[in-house]
Nucleic acid binder design. Structure first.
Lengths: 341, 341
DNA sequence: GTGAAAGCGCTAACAT
DNA sequence: ATGTTAGCGCTTTCAC
């Protein structure tokens, strides 16, 4: 590598190769049919010698193709997303793309700001795990011809390609498993539901299961607060269902963590005093007490498929074709926390 | 937002405002001293009405400032890095920057490829958690004037600004704590050490502690393999130190997880049969058995400070000033897994 | 206080 | 098979 090799331009290469920069450009874009073998070989060698790399900014400015996509996620510290992002990154590489990422912390204002800011860099499309509070804005973007893939969120009516998991079915299956294991009353522990579709769908599956299997009213506990309030919720749930065998279902990893901490503080035995089950399968769920029954989501594959779908859209002439929902199956990992006694 | 508002250029704004695009450009760059208040107000209003946003690609091409930085990490699914990246992202936003990230999975070839690929996008600098196998290459980049911040790695001689934690000291402190808790022999469980400086430093602190406190030879176990081989390592360690009270120290979250899984399989009691302590404090370490004693690293702050430092470098005329090491303190979170019996 | 014009490093339409 | 030329949307020098 030479000093300043990042300052070498197409003109330098052209001059040394004794051809016009058009020919170099053709070479760079693989249009070899428009040049002699000698030109081709000479150019190849010179590029290699000079360590020339084309300036993407200039290419993008001209062609409006930045080879960059934008990723908007709720919270990258959540393992579900960090694995998803790894899938996205690996897949991007295969397509010759890079990605710019923004963490929006559930803030819809931030979501809009970041989308505009990434568009300033001319990202060619987005993979968005939306707050679900900017639907009009997203539709606007879509009308402008910017491909958008929704991940882990379903917005109705269906306006964007959507990558998600079989949330309803797997939640319902988990309920069935709890029934089969002898649990009689199920508490549903979730963060604030807001508009977020996954939470709504999961709670719907729970509610349906309550009616259809457990003959109980839904008992939904919102645990956005601290450890104490989570512990209180659990105590309330236990009090309200004294004689029956009980289990809690958690809607995401954070809810799971909070419930486990509270159960720990309360000194409850799993699964004798309380069964536990829910989203999501994390590296450590097998190690807590008797092992926690948990739902595994294929987040890496989800990330890959998001990119596949986005690339299809980007390379598609006509962009207003009907959006599709792609649903990947989850897996219920059964462990001691929901054992039949 | 209007249709096609991303197609509006500085020329459109200039035409409507009835001024030259130079004036618009001055407005965009805050050079208000070169225009009348009327011009200024008019431009402001028109930009707002049109929802005009300048094309970053064009700005960057001209100015060679992309407002983009590059992040290279080993593995984004490791909570240490995902939290670090959150810190980086939040801090970037304050500076008006975005970042392009690459996950290199400990692969030095990928590291080089990604660095070049991000440079094609004219990132203005890098925050790199290097494989430590591309030092010459990184030095080359640095000579070309590309600011590089090393994070979580120390390369000697010191050629880059470096953000790290007080690894040696905190590891040594952890050893002291084990001694104070009545442990007599310590096993060191690590992934392959390779060139990675953190692992070297941690193992050095361990080795020194062995000599200075425990009067033992270092007992280092490499656990890159599967669960079975980790379990074997633990059995060997126990066999080799039959009569003494024993503890293991793990060098990162993955090693910790593997050890805990193996301990679980072997049915060992913590801390009676085996004490456990090490990197790193994760959301769940308090929930396993009696709670796991662990080292907390301030990764979010580390991420923020990386960006602070990088911005200093980017905005610095003279870039060859002496590199600095910034060391953030860790915390040892003491729990039941290293209890005095 | 304002504008004309050159140019950043490419691509592509149109020649030849 | 190859070159000429005109931009892409900005910034910046220089002139007035």
């Amino acid at each position: 590598l030479k000093e300043n090799s990042n300052k070498i331009t197409i003109n330098d290469v052209a001059k040394i190769a004794n051809v016009s920069k058009t020919t170099i450009s053709r070479y760079l874009n693989g249009k070899f049919e428009y040049m002699s073998t000698e030109s081709r070989d000479k150019i190849q060698q010179i590029i290699k010698e000079l360590n020339y790399r084309p300036n993407n900014l200039a290419r993008s400015l001209k062609s409006n193709k930045s080879k960059l996509i934008g990723i908007i996620v709720e919270d990258i510290t959540n393992p579900f997303y960090s694995i998803l992002i790894k899938g996205i990154g690996d897949s991007c590489k295969e397509y010759g793309y890079n990605f710019v990422m923004a963490n929006i912390d559930n803030d819809s204002v931030l979501e809009r700001e970041y989308i505009l800011s990434l568009l300033d860099h001319r990202v060619e499309g987005f993979i968005i795990q939306s707050t679900c509070e900017n639907n009009d804005f997203l539709i606007e973007m879509s009308h402008r011809g910017i491909p958008i893939i929704m991940v882990d969120r379903v917005i109705k009516p269906l306006l964007f390609d959507t990558l998600t998991t079989n949330d309803y079915q797997i939640t319902y299956n988990a309920m069935q498993h709890l029934l089969d294991s002898g649990f009689q009353k199920i508490g549903f522990f979730t963060q604030k539901i807001r508009n977020i579709s996954t939470r709504i769908i999961r709670s719907q599956a729970y509610t349906d299961a309550c009616k259809q299997m457990f003959n109980q009213e839904p008992q939904i506990y919102i645990i956005d607060g601290d450890l104490d309030s989570t512990a209180d919720s659990i105590k309330n749930f236990l009090e309200a269902n004294k004689k029956q065998r009980k289990a809690v279902f958690t809607t995401n990893g954070l809810a799971m963590l909070n419930v486990l901490k509270a159960v720990n503080v309360l000194g409850l035995r799993i699964p004798q005093d309380l069964g536990i089950c829910g989203y999501e399968e994390l590296s450590w769920t097998g190690l807590i007490g008797p092992g926690i029954t948990a739902i595994f989501q294929p987040s890496y594959e989800l990330g890959q498929k998001c990119v596949d779908r986005l690339m299809k859209r980007i390379n598609q002439r006509k962009r207003n074709t009907k959006p599709r929902v792609i649903e990947l199956p989850c897996q219920l990992i059964i462990r001691g926390s929901t054992r039949l006694l």
